[in-house]
Design a protein around this nucleic acid. Structure first.
Lengths: 191, 191
DNA sequence: GCGCTATTTTGAACAATGTTCAACACGGAT
DNA sequence: ATCCGTGTTGAACATTGTTCAAAATAGCGC
């Protein structure tokens, strides 16, 4: 049942998700979907919850021996995930609840935890900085990379080819780290 | 009529926009809304079109004498606009059409033109770089700033206070420019 | 002013879709 | 077999985008 919902979102976008389609594909009644998930938002949120879990799993698996390499790894992993699951990520970031109901605590926590993954390598690179400033820095880097990738993959806006994006992201991380006074992983092309 | 639609989106978000509400507020029939805008998407797109126009107007008004100051101005102007028109910006970037109908050419053009605004100052700062690379760079900076601001203002995710965001954005632009080998406008805090 | 035609406006009816809930089905305990 | 709790069902309802034939209005020639 969850599978089919996720399948529909992934294939045709959140707007194409219909309760009746899910019920039919799962060979059960409409009511059963409601018994399971409470309401439509509940279904979507369950899918989103698993999306952020899947993303987190991949991010956590990035090797952490070298902090610079790790930051590159995060960005590249995020890109790979976004390319493979564009609609699922959009569902996570763009879905708004009915009536301003509060965003589920646990999903919020998982997203924050994803932000926080960048904290450790940044702390190692800037050991004397204020911890809170590093936390903000981590969130900012995450947001910047997220912005580049999500706008970059937006087909509506003449998407940048993923291969090109990969190079851009790497260059962005290098440039930004260099701006922080840290040695980049590779040399930038001569200007 | 447009006013009321924009008002509803700005105040309560795109999801709260209803054809009937617009018709009632504009004191006309439902059908008239359709005569004017074709369909619901047409109404939304008209609002979005004016949103991007308003944003463009403000960005174009940023003084261009000093390229670094101009880039800071773009970022700060974007932040101000996003703070004042959060829901309108979200409508512009998050609204998906029915049935994968193509994104309107003219809105796409205006967004691209906004991306391209950063081209000129970047070119002045890096006169020897390949033009196409500068164009990509411009789009990337726009996207990064957009990401930082849009995630930063997301109330669902424990929004960063706008004043704090302002500082972060300025610091981000400085850091990035510094990474490109260009002198920052202000000194970064000592670490 | 009148008659006629073209254009615009109207809102009842329709379609799609999320939601509810009383009825039903099944399972196990007595 | 009876009864009770639990889970399932899908018809009915509410909301909301959409259509379209009819009514209203505007324009125009006389």
């Amino acid at each position: 049942m969850l599978e089919t919902a996720r399948g529909i979102i992934a294939a045709k976008g959140l707007r194409s998700l219909k309760v009746r389609d899910v019920a039919e594909a799962a060979d059960c009644s409409i009511g059963s979907v409601y018994n399971e998930f409470g309401d439509f938002d509940g279904l979507i949120l369950t899918v989103n919850r698993e999306t952020v879990q899947a993303l987190s799993r991949r991010l956590v698996a990035v090797p952490g021996d070298d902090p610079i390499r790790q930051l590159h790894g995060f960005a590249e992993t995020y890109l790979d995930f976004a390319v493979a699951n564009a609609n699922l990520l959009r569902s996570l970031f763009e879905h708004r609840m009915e009536d301003d109901r509060p965003f589920p605590e646990d999903i919020l926590g998982m997203v924050m935890q994803a932000f926080a993954l960048m904290y450790e390598p940044l702390r190692r690179l800037m050991p004397n900085r204020d911890p809170e400033e590093i936390a903000l820095q981590a969130r900012m880097m995450f947001s910047a990379v997220h912005g580049i990738i999500s706008l970059g993959l937006e087909e509506r806006m003449v998407a940048v080819p993923p291969e090109r994006l990969r190079g851009q992201i790497a260059q962005f991380v290098d440039t930004y780290l260099s701006g922080l006074g840290l040695a980049p992983l590779r040399m930038r092309s001569t200007d």
